[in-house]
Amino acid sequence: MAVIQRVSLSLLIAVVAPAVLFYGFFAIAGVWTAIAAALVWSYGAIAWRAVTGRRASGLLILAAILLTGRTALSVVADSPWLYFLQPIISDGVVAVLFLLSLASARPMVARLAGDFYPMDHELAARPRVRRLFRNLTIMWAVLGLAKAAAMLWLLQSQTLGTFVLVKSISMLAVNVLAAFATVGLAAFVARKEGLLGSPRWVLAGT
């Protein structure tokens, strides 16, 4: 439960809130105001956690970096269309990086797991945990490639308003479902490894 709460909070802050803000401002005030609102939210969330003495998650920092790059390039090119093309490209690039990480001793999911659960070398080296990290890395890589292909088709074939609406709903739903699938698989492995209810598991919620 503690891990589910942590993942849910990270997703809410880094993914759900900026997506909702973006669409709300897009509908009311236009694309550039929506872009600014999403960026302000991300850096505001990082600043708030710093002021309150809490570490910002890797997901939140990554989201802020990607939003910054997207915004800067779009402003320089004066092209909202470019703003929406960039995450499609980044989804594809990240998916490829996930696939490439499978050739290393630490697949990408293993590198990110510490944001959500205290992870030491002994735990990470367990066979079931290693298989979990590998399978989740494959799952997120395939998902990233599928998202990139679907959104590229949508961007090229639909109006900007339709694209934003469909993307805001569908991608948010896909990301949330994938995140909870990740947590479910992790909980299954944790139960098999006897970690549920352990002090280490409880620590994840502090």
Rank of each mutant, 00 (worst) to 15 (best):
L12Q: 04
L102I: 13
G144P: 12
V51W: 15
K147M: 12
F84H: 06
A148T: 12
T162K: 05
Y117T: 00
P118Y: 10
S104Q: 08
A105F: 11
A103S: 14
G24Y: 15
L21K: 06
P199D: 04
L62G: 12
Y23V: 08
P107S: 03
D120G: 11
A27C: 12
A14L: 09
R134A: 10
F25D: 02
T137M: 06
A45K: 01
L165Y: 01
R126W: 09
V76F: 05
L155S: 00
L152W: 00
Y117G: 01
F98T: 04
G53K: 02
Y117K: 03
R70D: 04
L39N: 01
V129S: 08
R55G: 09
L73Y: 00
W81H: 00
P118F: 03
L59Y: 09
A19Q: 07
S42N: 08
L59V: 15
M171H: 14
S79A: 06
T68Q: 06
F84K: 03
M1A: 14
A2V: 03
A56K: 01
A34N: 08
L12H: 01
V109M: 08
G144E: 01
L155Y: 00
V129D: 00
S79W: 00
L97F: 09
L60I: 04
L9E: 03
S10T: 14
A64M: 06
S57K: 02
V3M: 10
I4T: 15
Q156Y: 05
G194N: 06
L160N: 02
L165K: 02
D120S: 03
P80D: 04
I89V: 09
I169W: 14
A186H: 02
R111V: 11
E122H: 07
G144I: 00
L73S: 02
L195T: 12
A148V: 11
A17Y: 11
L152R: 05
F26R: 01
A50Y: 08
A19D: 02
A63L: 05
L145G: 09
A204E: 01
S104W: 13
A110K: 11
S170C: 11
R131I: 09
V183A: 13
A146I: 13
L172M: 15
G24D: 04
I61H: 03
V94P: 11
I169A: 10
G114Y: 00
L62P: 15
V76T: 08
L154T: 11
A50F: 10
Q86L: 13
R106I: 15
L172F: 12
Y83A: 04
L66C: 07
F84L: 10
G30T: 07
A149R: 10
L177D: 09
A47E: 06
I4D: 08
T206M: 02
V93W: 04
A110N: 09
A34T: 01
I65W: 03
